[in-house]
Design a protein around this nucleic acid. Structure first.
Lengths: 316, 316
DNA sequence: GTTTGTTACGGCTACCGTAAAGATC
DNA sequence: GATCTTTACGGTAGCCGTAACAAAC
């Protein structure tokens, strides 16, 4: 069995079973890919691909099981190379962070500045998505570090570390009646106004709508968005009020808005860092995690990530 | 990178870094192994092995991290072959069960008979050990299925399924004063007699000694053993009384002994089946698990073992 | 001197790419 | 006809084993 054959198979699968495209991405010719697949099938003794009249149409059921493991093998092989990279050139490499808009815009921004200063030769990639797809990106090794909120889905191959609570504020247009209260309004008071809500997939546990519904209230939802900037724009236009992350509000920049602290009105979701269990973290990745969560020591990370760790701590 | 090189490295490590022996086990010549290692080191760009004056004395620290992943890769490659084997010859293969003496002697014995009848061409291997090493054997893929008791150690790569409670009995020599009670004695009554105890590593949770000590009692421990047969022999000789698994006592065979039900006096440890998470289970392995725990459906096993399972169920 | 690891060399396998053919839409 | 996959063929790279060499216990 050869790693090259597994590589061909996985790439073929990613390219929708188009051999030409897979070959191109593998920097090889079509016949070479055909050959590798054939050799693999011959060695394993069964048809991995389902062919219909000389066309590949998909994976056999066994092929599904096979490819999942092939991906795993290639991932680990990548990790081996990464160990080599770390020793050869510890100052350069790539760092792929999967995160939500809001963390990309605020949390990450703060961390990237010192990080870039320390590691100018590390290329930084940000993958945006909802918490579920962030978990997926990290678990498949497409991203090194995930920053989002806890998700309901269970990923035994992921390790998550709670990072900091996400404070929420209620934002309103200037001179809104709610501002006269001079205190955190009750849900019953908020529900009287049209609401613009943050997409529940991004909310981490209790969403805004959940909070209302749990109290038997039916808010008037104007629209749902995944981006605090969008929500702020709509609120500023007087279309409604909203609850967003405190991070996303700036008194000086958001001049068209007013802010009321939301306290724990909508629950207190917590930001979490996610890495794949057993991942080899490069030195600069440790340092980046430390920037995001300064009280997280490298030894803690090791303990969490370690394949044969003695305690599970917090894990997904 | 080549699988062959990783294979050489892992075998080398297993052979205590003796290249000649590793080469022999790999059915290759020494120079071939040397070459593979050299190529690997050249590709990765660092010294995996620590050499002192032309002798290999061990792994570098990075080598440790590397070899763990290499093992993982080779394990998964083995799984791919196993998928092929299953399709080519579903009726033959090997089944390695890691278990304790007691389960090997009783639980397993009952399951093996029908299993052998159904799969005469499957070679059966039993690896005996304490629950901790059983977990290790399964987690490293050296054993397919573990049968023992729950251990304190956490293995995120293992999936365990509780199977059945392990009833315990108190055994005494014939005509022992305790027998006059005609009921389960209290710990305070038992503590008056010298005790022969089952090794705590095999006890699963609460050991015999724990039960006494938790009640502030100090039993007179004659000796500790890992094998119920040994314990029975000593009890029969009048050296003390003991608590063993009910399974291990037979009225007809153990003529020199008497038995009293221990109820939940020493806790109710539970037998567990263990498999490696994400393992590809061959059809005959499913069938074997079903023999051990008839109410465990194949779909349940799939759900437990599945790499991207949606619920964690019971896991170590 | 025996065991152990590395280097040198020749044979052979097997991979790759180019070219062409076969099939499908 | 265009796209896609497989087969055919020749060049080349690289792996393996034998043999010789170097070092250590």
């Amino acid at each position: 069995m050869k790693l090259r054959a597994l590589e061909c198979l996985c790439e073929l699968s990613r390219c929708g079973f188009n051999m030409s495209r897979a070959a191109e991405r593998l920097h090889a010719t079509q016949p070479a890919v055909t050959r590798q697949i054939q050799l693999l099938e011959a060695e394993l003794g069964f048809e991995v691909l389902v062919r219909r009249r000389n066309r590949i149409i998909g994976l056999s059921t066994e092929g599904e099981a096979l490819i999942a493991r092939a991906e795993q093998i290639l991932y680990e092989a990548g990790q081996l190379r990464r160990i080599g990279d770390e020793l050869r050139s510890p100052e350069s490499g790539r760092l792929v962070v999967a995160t939500t808009h809001i963390h990309a815009r605020y949390t990450l921004l703060r961390a990237i500045k010192p990080f870039r200063a320390r590691y100018p030769n590390v290329s930084f990639y940000i993958q945006s998505g909802d918490p579920s797809s962030i978990a997926h990106l990290v678990s498949t090794g497409q991203a090194d570090i995930g920053i989002s909120v806890a998700t309901a889905d269970v990923h035994p191959e992921l390790v998550t570390v709670p990072c900091y609570p996400i404070d929420r504020v209620i934002i309103t247009p200037k001179r809104h009646p709610l501002l006269r209260l001079k205190r955190t309004p009750a849900l019953e008071e908020l529900v009287r106004y049209p609401f613009i809500v943050y997409d529940r997939r991004f909310s981490g546990g209790l969403s805004i709508i959940d909070a209302f519904e749990r109290n038997g209230l039916k808010p008037d939802i104007v629209l749902t968005a995944t981006d605090a900037e969008v929500i702020k724009a709509y609120v500023a236009e007087g279309l409604g009020i909203a609850a967003i992350q405190k991070l996303a509000y700036s008194r000086t920049r958001d001049t068209g808005l007013s802010m009321i602290d939301a306290g724990s009105l909508f629950g207190l979701p917590i930001a979490v860092l996610t890495v794949r269990r057993g991942v080899f973290l490069r030195r600069y990745m440790y340092d980046f995690l430390a920037l995001l969560s300064p009280d997280l020591a490298a030894t803690d990370i090791d303990r969490l990530v370690g394949v044969d760790m003695s305690r599970p701590a917090i894990s997904g």
